[in-house]
Design a protein around this nucleic acid. Structure first.
Length: 582
DNA sequence: GCCGTTTTCGGCCCGACTGTTTTCAGTCG
């Protein structure tokens, strides 16, 4: 049985909520943290369980022997006995009910005990009948809010894609640019760390007039409804996404930005380092509490060190500024302390696009239009890589070998006219056995061959992709797992093993920048780069405007600690040609 | 339940906001 990480994570989140409904202390937090780390783990945790048992699963941060053995139990039997007992004691659809804004585990427990509410439908029926406002501790306002939030909970139980949330954040940043009370503003939270999926949009503003900022925020034309609004913070819903605003004093902006960017685990490690130095870090600043009797006696206890900028905050802890994309508690604080932070790739380092489609397959623009658009962007080279026919290609999208020969002539012709280097390539399909769906003679004529899995996208794909990577004519493995965010998890990969083989074979691993994919993930990129593999940031463009998606790939590379040198398409044309063996 | 150059036992982040309450519980981030 193949079990996805997010499926495991959901189980332990349910575990946490059921325990919390019973007033159990501390355990819920432990289960939630374990769930979060399982969800974010770059490889299949179920695979870990199968290969190495509880010991291997305990390698996941904040997973100890108790939770690890529950993972093993679930992978082996499809059930966790303790969870079944908890469910029997509180037989409710916990995930659905707690997805209603303002309804948490305690509320679920109370409404089950008092009214027998088990599902969203039960909740709606009880609210419409006015029963909820009769329960002690509840009132009419709570009942109204539940009704108001129910539809939203029914419609959107998924995290939003980075590619949806980023443009929204850009919009509101433009709105704030016209508000006089806003001194500085930034996105924070997981969006600033460029996580592939986002729970909500976090915004931070520096201002001496917080209430004016909150007013401007709730008046924003794209704010569809106001969830809450106080003197220094507010939340609205916009286009189905929750947007949280926090306003802070300008002199505390750096500390607040550091605090609200997270991740929580990164901040815990940072705080630990502060404690070692007699310092205290919170959202208001870094404080020297070495001469203070009770450092917990207030928010701003002790002497405040500089914290107008994030760099000040890290400097106070003898650390260089750690880029937001790295703040996932994957060893970055230790690396920073030892001066080992990589010089991360930046958007401006990208010199070319090595994966694009034209009207020959499923693109919407001609070879010439795609090449000219790349030249206009200032790129030095592109690789025309239309789909080949083969496993996973439906509706006649992919090209036969004869058609590819025909296209090759056109690509050469466009290349002769172009100011930039035009590589002739293909996106071939990797069969279930690792074979490549284009004839070897034709592959040898091409400059840059991408091999991508498009079919049989479940189970372990490591051996299959290694075989493709070792094919002498293959230069890039495209979207290696084949995952589609919120839809399918794709292949399980032993990334270190694949990366070592790819490095040996001089084959690059793709970071596909499409917001639906972001494949490889940042965590996988880190493992790949550590094994010496070269990665390539491609947009898989089907139109010129798709070239803009490159930022998502670059920031994913940064989440994987990649420097420009690790990324093939930051190299100069001659070096890329040498890598391709042309 | 997890975790440890202060601990293998005894801690666990904490502040803002809301709605329900007369001083607080629940939710959220």
């Amino acid at each position: 049985m193949s079990v996805r990480n997010d499926e495991l994570a959901a189980l332990f989140e349910e575990f946490a909520n059921l325990l919390e409904a019973q007033d159990v202390e501390y355990k819920p937090r432990a289960y939630r943290q374990a769930a979060e780390n399982i969800r974010a783990y770059p490889e299949s945790v179920a695979d870990l369980a199968r290969r190495g048992g509880t010991d291997a699963v305990m390698g996941v941060n904040r997973v100890g022997d108790a939770i690890a053995s529950k993972v093993v139990e679930y992978v082996e039997t499809g059930e966790i006995e303790e969870l079944e007992e908890l469910r029997a004691a509180l037989p409710v659809d916990m995930a659905a009910l707690t997805s209603v804004e303002g309804v948490g585990p305690k509320t679920v427990g109370t409404l089950y005990d008092e009214l027998g509410v088990r599902t969203l439908d039960d909740l709606e029926t009880a609210a419409r009948a006015g029963e909820i406002s009769e329960v002690r501790g509840f009132g009419e306002k709570t009942e109204e809010n539940i009704l108001a939030n129910l539809d939203f909970a029914r419609r959107s139980h998924e995290r939003k894609l980075l590619g949806q949330a980023r443009p929204l954040a850009d919009d509101i940043q433009r709105h704030f640019a016209g508000v006089a009370a806003v001194e500085r503003s930034s996105v924070a939270g997981s969006l600033r760390r460029w996580k592939p999926t986002i729970g909500d949009v976090d915004l931070l503003v520096a201002s001496d007039e917080p209430e004016a900022v909150v007013d401007a925020f709730t008046d924003w034309e794209d704010a569809d409804s106001v969830i809450e609004a106080g003197p220094i913070k507010a939340s609205v819903r916009s286009k189905g996404i929750r947007v949280d605003l926090r306003v802070v004093a300008p002199e505390e902006y750096g500390a607040a930005l550091q605090h609200f960017t997270g991740s929580r685990d990164h901040n815990i490690t940072v705080r630990d380092r502060a404690i070692e130095r007699g310092l205290k870090v919170n959202e208001y600043g870094v404080f020297d509490v070495s001469d203070v009797d009770d450092p917990d006696s207030g928010q701003r206890v002790g002497e405040r060190l500089a914290c107008e900028t994030e760099a000040d905050v890290y400097a106070a802890l003898d650390l260089p500024l750690i880029p937001p994309e790295m703040r996932e508690d994957r060893g970055e604080v230790e690396a920073a302390a030892e001066g080992r932070l990589p010089d991360l790739i930046e958007e401006g380092d990208v010199r070319g696009e090595l994966h694009l489609h034209t009207t020959w397959s499923d693109g919407r623009y001609s070879v010439r239009e795609m090449v000219e658009a790349a030249a206009e962007r200032g790129y030095d080279y592109v690789n025309v890589s239309d789909h080949a026919t083969g496993p996973g290609m439906v509706g006649g999208v992919g090209l036969s070998d004869d058609e590819l020969e025909e296209q090759l002539a056109e690509v050469r012709e466009v290349g002769d006219d172009a100011d930039i280097e035009v590589f002739a390539g293909v996106e071939a399909n990797v069969g279930e056995d690792g074979s490549v769906s284009v004839g070897d003679d034709l592959l040898a004529e091409l400059d840059c061959v991408i091999a991508s899995p498009h079919s049989a996208l479940d189970g372990d794909g490591t051996d299959r992709l290694i075989r493709a990577a070792e094919h002498p004519e293959v230069n890039v493995i495209g979207h290696p797992t084949g995952r589609m965010l919120n839809q399918r998890s794709g292949l399980d990969l032993d990334v270190p093993r694949l990366a070592a083989a790819a490095a040996e074979a001089n084959t690059a691993l793709e970071i596909n920048s499409s917001p639906n994919r972001l494949d490889l993930s940042g965590g996988a990129v880190k493992l790949a780069v550590e094994r010496g593999a070269t990665v390539v940031v491609n947009t898989d463009a089907h139109s010129p405007s798709n070239y803009d998606l490159v930022r998502y790939g670059v920031h994913t590379a940064r989440r994987g600690w990649a420097a420009a040198d690790d990324v093939l398409n930051t190299w100069e044309t001659d070096d890329v040609r040498a890598f391709l063996g042309r």
